[in-house]
């Protein structure tokens, strides 16, 4: 499990590889907060290589969403597989995040 960060124009793209769970959520949070502190405002988290997410992983996404918004930025999500889509629907987090089917659509949506 790992996170890789890249830039697409002025958008910070985070790829989540493997699981986003209690054992690694803090790493994701810190990486995004570091970018936010550098002045970045637009964030896209791509889940195309993600297996599953637990409640603490979902909690980190909520936390990041709030912190980014407080700084006048935006967080968007892309490429939820069917399992992850179900998870977001169960928890109603699909109503909280702007979610795109593809990375390209998400990038265009900013």
């Amino acid at each position: 499990m790992s996170f890789s960060i890249s830039k697409q124009g002025d958008i910070v793209v985070v790829d989540v590889e493997g699981q986003l769970i209690v054992g690694n959520r803090q790493e994701l949070k810190q990486k995004v907060l570091d970018e936010l502190e550098r002045g970045e405002k637009k964030f896209l988290i791509d889940f195309s290589q993600t297996g599953y997410i637990d409640s603490s992983g979902l909690g980190v996404l909520v936390s990041l969403s709030k912190k980014i918004r407080e700084q006048g930025g935006e967080l968007r999500l892309a490429n939820l597989n069917d399992d992850l889509q179900t998870l977001f629907e169960l928890t109603k987090l699909d109503t909280l995040f702007q979610i795109s089917d593809t990375r390209e659509r998400a990038l265009e949506s900013f």
């Binding site: 637990d54 409640s55 603490s56 979902l58 909690g59 980190v60 909520v62 936390s63 709030k66 998870l87 169960l90 928890t91 109603k92 987090l93 109503t95 909280l96």
Partner: peptide, 18 residues
């Protein structure tokens, strides 16, 4: 219930629900 409007923004409290 973490899905209510009051709770959906909470960072914790989804474990048992899930």
């Amino acid at each position: 219930d973490p899905t209510t409007p009051d709770n959906v923004m909470r960072e914790e409290g989804r474990g048992l629900f899930l």
